[in-house]
Design a protein around this nucleic acid. Sequence first.
DNA 1: CACTTGACCTGTCCGC
DNA 2: TGCGGACAGGTCAAGT
Length: 284
Amino acid sequence: MPELPEVETIRQELTEAIVGLKITDIEVRLAKQFKGEKKDVVGAKIVKILRRGKVLVFKLSNGKNLVVHLKLTGQLVWVPKAGERTTLGHPIPFAGEELPSKTTHIIFSFDKKGKLFYNDLRQFGWIKVLDDKGVEAELAPLYEAIEPFTPQFTSQNLAEIFSRSRRPIKLVLMDQAKIVGVGNIYANDALWEARIDPRRPANSLEPKEIEKLRQGIVKVLKEGLKYGGASENAYVRATGEPGAYQEHFRAYQMEGEACPRGDGVIRRLKIGGRGTFYCPGCQK
DNA sequence: CACTTGACCTGTCCGC
DNA sequence: TGCGGACAGGTCAAGT
C-alpha cells in the first residue's frame, strides 16, 4: 500500500477537500470491505482527518469515526461535483478513466459537492465505522510503536527496539508493532541511504549505523511526501494524479541498474517473502 | 516468546 | 496464442 508518505498525501488532500462536508449517502458495493452501519455515518460531517502509520481516521461530527486501511491497492479518490458516472480525463491504474469502475467498492456522496471513491483491485483494504473507544482499541498496537516525524523517533529508541531482535533489519523496519509507516519501498531506500545490508540482524547494528538509519528513514519518507508518494503500482493521490517518488527510487525496483552512488549494480533478493533491493557495493 | 509460512484477492508480465 | 509461475506498496492467523 500506500506507506506513510502516500497515506499522508491522501490525508492532506482530503483534509483540503472534504473537512466540513456532510456525508449524504454511502454505496457499499463489496460488503466485506465496509464493517459497520451506514446509518451511523450518513448525515454526519467530516470534522478532521488523522493518520497513524498507514491508517487514516476520519473523525465525524456524531462521535463516530471512519477508519481506513488501504493495504496494497486501496485508492481514495475525491471527485468534486461528480455525477452518476464521472470521466476523469486521465486513467487511474486498475480503475480506468471513469468512476465508479469495476474496482470501485465503496462510494461516499457529499450532496452536490462531490463523491469520494474507494477503489481496491485486490480487495485487501477495509473501512470500519468505530466510536472513539473502538478507534483506541483498533490503533492500540500502532501506538505501542514509534511514529517517524515525532520526538520519539530517536536513535536511542531505535537502538532499544533493534537490540531485542535478531531478525533482518529490513523486517524490523517494516514491523508496524515497532515502527509505523515504513513499508517495502521506504525500508529498501532507507537502508540504501544508511549503507546497511538489509539482511543484517537488527541487534548487530552499531550506534553510528542506527543514527544513519534514523536519518535515512526520515530523509526518504520526507522525499516521498514531497513528491506526493510513489505511483509504481496502484497508488494515486486523492486527486487521482500519480505521485512522483518512483522517479527517485534509490534501490527499490532498481534491480540491474547502477547504484545511484556508483558503487555497483543493484541486486534483488527475498527477505520474509518480500522483494528486497540493495547495492552489494556500498551496503554492508 | 521469536520467527516463518500461507492466506486473503486480482491483475500483469515473462518465459516456454 | 495459451499456460504456468512469479510478482505486486500489507497485514493476519496458524504453524514450528
